[in-house]
Computed example of a mutant assay.
Amino acid sequence: MTRRRLVLRSLAASAAAIAAPPLLAQDDKSPITLLVGAASSMDATARLIADHLHQVLGRPVIVVSKLGAGGRLALGELKRAAPDGRTLMFSTSSLFAIYPNIYTKLDYDPVADFTPIGCVCWFDVGVATGPMTGAADMKQLLAWSKAKGKGAVYGDAPGAGSSSHFVGIATALATGIPWEAVHYKDSGVGVIDLSSGRLPTLITGTSPLVEMHKAGRIRIVAVSGEKRSPLVPEVPTLVETGINVTIQNSAAVYAPAKMPRELVDRLYTALMPMLGKPEFQEKMALWGMTPYPMNGLQLAASLADERKRFDGLVKASGYVPEAL
């Protein structure tokens, strides 16, 4: 009887440890570093995550922006860190699903070198047109592009190899339009060229397009996600326009490789309640993001599927992988 009680008490204590993430901080008050390799909404979201984890875990969480090389600098620092929960990273799926297919040699393995903790949100890109085409919807934009022939270029931001670039490639393959890409590092420059009539089409994150869209200076004619964007719910997805293309990025928290399962579970349990907070959901909607909870195993499976899809798309498009 005594032994049974001890076993039950042990099981209860284990369940409580998982259900109450603050226990993670009881014997270690050292800061947690949350790396982020992109600016704008990714950096802002990382700071929301840091504030939430600080409140739940009772440990300081410091956001370190390490920009450069499309996020690879920050990812390299994560790879070199110890798997003790003191260094994490908030990153888009591009580094784990697109980059392995577009670079001939990466200094990391997207599977073996990292531990997925949990997915936070997803976001898509928008397809927009301006005064050069006069198109009011995707059907009219496709008709203009076909009539224009080789002059039917599209701009993509943040440039070659981005999800925006591949939305254009996939759309061209699916419809037979002769789109050629013009790469922009900055979506702001692309929006200016689009609204002034120097560029017929721009594909980039939906958020930078919204202000000009609502002002009537440009028109977002489609978004690339599985669902409509919360920023422009009146705009159809590419699938809804009859184009069988769906490309969206996830944004998630990652840790170094070989993170102990108990620590992964506790960090995931600490992270997830944030996604249900109305204030978090409201800010995500303003940035064109949608909360999207997945645990580490689900996230790993999703990334594997995404890598496979991009592998097929890269090969079908004839895109030549770049050397680093």
Rank of each mutant, 00 (worst) to 15 (best):
R309K: 14
V111M: 00
A17D: 13
A16V: 14
Y154R: 12
Q248S: 12
Y103K: 03
A301W: 01
L313Q: 03
A81G: 04
E282G: 03
I62K: 09
I203D: 00
G118H: 00
A181L: 06
I169N: 04
A304M: 06
Y154K: 10
R261D: 14
E234G: 11
L67T: 07
A152H: 09
V153N: 02
A19P: 05
L313E: 04
V63A: 04
Q248C: 08
A50M: 05
S91L: 08
R219H: 12
I32H: 01
A147I: 01
V167R: 05
V320I: 12
G126R: 09
N249P: 00
S250E: 07
E240D: 11
V245K: 11
A152Y: 08
K214A: 10
L313P: 05
H52I: 06
P131R: 07
W122R: 14
C121W: 01
P293D: 02
P293K: 01
D43Q: 13
S229R: 10
S162A: 11
P278L: 11
V167W: 02
S14K: 15
F96T: 04
G58I: 00
P31L: 01
G161Y: 14
I243K: 11
D28F: 09
A160L: 13
L34E: 01
G68P: 02
S163F: 10
A270S: 03
A270M: 06
I177K: 04
T206H: 06
W287T: 07
A181P: 00
M1R: 06
M284C: 15
R86I: 07
L313Y: 05
M284G: 00
V182C: 04
G312S: 12
V153L: 10
F96R: 01
F123G: 02
T269L: 12
G155S: 11
G130E: 05
A136W: 01
G126F: 13
Q55G: 09
C119E: 14
G118E: 02
T246M: 13
R80L: 13
